[in-house]
Design a protein around this nucleic acid. Structure first.
Lengths: 219, 219
DNA sequence: GTCTATAGATGGATAGAC
DNA sequence: GTCTATCCATCTATAGAC
């Protein structure tokens, strides 16, 4: 019975998958909290309670582990956005309004980042990937614009009177609004405003963002 | 004559200052191009053509050198903004319009980042400091909001009808627009738009940004 | 003051036992 | 497959010669 070959193979598989998942989650958490360069493979394996070699065995290298977390989380997030855009299109006979399109882009990351959401860590990881990411990640961010193409196309359909160049630039400004929703920036704003800005009220913030961006698009 | 004590002291001082400046400029350039963590003290001293110990001799440590570059460049940039805001106030009898206030905030970094401007490297350094900065820099960014207070106050004076909370949030959105003007984001937009967005036309981009932000403030 | 040589510490990756 | 022990590269910082 101690011969591994006689054991139920699913037990081994499960144990293996559990180790891999433990590494994945510990890495995501530590990277999100402390930054990519400030977390070592030793930190990750210690947090996950596995041995030092696990990262290389299951993922190949530290960078490959980072990249796998990045790919999974960004595709999950963009899938949510695509679904919301699709739903808005269905509601409006295939032609959603500018506000509905913007909401499909804004709402998922804000939902993830809400104080009580267990996706909050994943959101922080994605935010870090934008600025601290490896060359691999930056290449993906630069070249993989397929999810943005749907939004750009929808905006052009909603505002056929606008030159395409204008739509792209306004989309760029809107992306800046989203990317600036980092914890450090909220802290800074809180400090500047003497504490009257409450970023924890996700619904109110979403409404403010939509008001501002919609006005910019309407001009 | 070979006794250093008999030389003109200004010669020694000048040579010292030249070495320090060479280290400063080489460091700023390399950090801006390749990121803070990807540049070693060896890279800097090799680029500057000085010996390895110079960084520690003149600045104390690698982090202290980084911090000194950061402080000098951010204070120069914010001084330009403050001057533009002051000039706008003078032109309008102490009460500049929303658009003038926004222009005073937008124009200096865009001028620095223009393709033919020799401040372009400094601008890229500042942009990196926002995301890759050490704990020291992030503390400064978080707590030193004095230059933003002038802008927030001017906006409230220009729009006394708006609740202060609204002004702070809209200022936050505007800051996001500015922070998103990174080279990587321009590349991404260029790729998305099939090349019709020309970020090199600084004047046109500034006008677009002002149109969008002013509309968001007017709503 | 400048420079070389090196200390001292850290981290990614891997060989080899079990 | 798991884990320990270790290799090897890299980096900052500094001591000490000149």
């Amino acid at each position: 019975m101690t011969d591994p070959l006689l054991q139920d193979p699913s037990e081994t598989d499960e144990a293996q998958a559990a180790t891999k998942a433990a590494v994945f989650n510990a890495a995501e958490r530590l990277f999100a909290l402390h930054g990519f360069q400030n977390v070592s493979v030793r930190d990750i394996t210690a947090e996950a309670g596995v041995n030092l070699a696990s990262v290389n065995y299951h993922f190949g290298s530290k960078d490959a582990l980072l990249f796998e977390i990045f790919r999974r989380r960004t595709s999950e997030l963009n899938r949510e956005r695509a679904r919301m855009l699709h739903e808005a299109a269905t509601r409006n006979g295939g032609k959603p309004t500018v506000r509905d399109i913007l909401e499909a882009y804004f709402a998922p990351p804000m939902r993830w980042a809400a104080p009580d959401n267990d996706r909050r860590i994943s959101m922080q990881f994605i935010i870090r990937a934008r600025s601290e990411g490896t060359a691999d990640m930056r290449d993906v961010l630069r070249n993989d614009v397929s999810h943005l193409e749907r939004f750009a196309g929808a905006l052009m359909a909603a505002r056929p009177d606008l030159p395409k160049e204008d739509v792209y630039w306004r989309l760029h400004f809107v992306l800046g609004m989203v990317h600036n929703n980092r914890f450090a920036e909220f802290d800074r704003l809180h400090h500047l405003s003497g504490g009257i800005t409450r970023e924890g009220d996700t619904d109110a913030l979403l409404r403010r963002m939509l008001d501002f961006a919609e006005a910019g698009f309407t001009a």
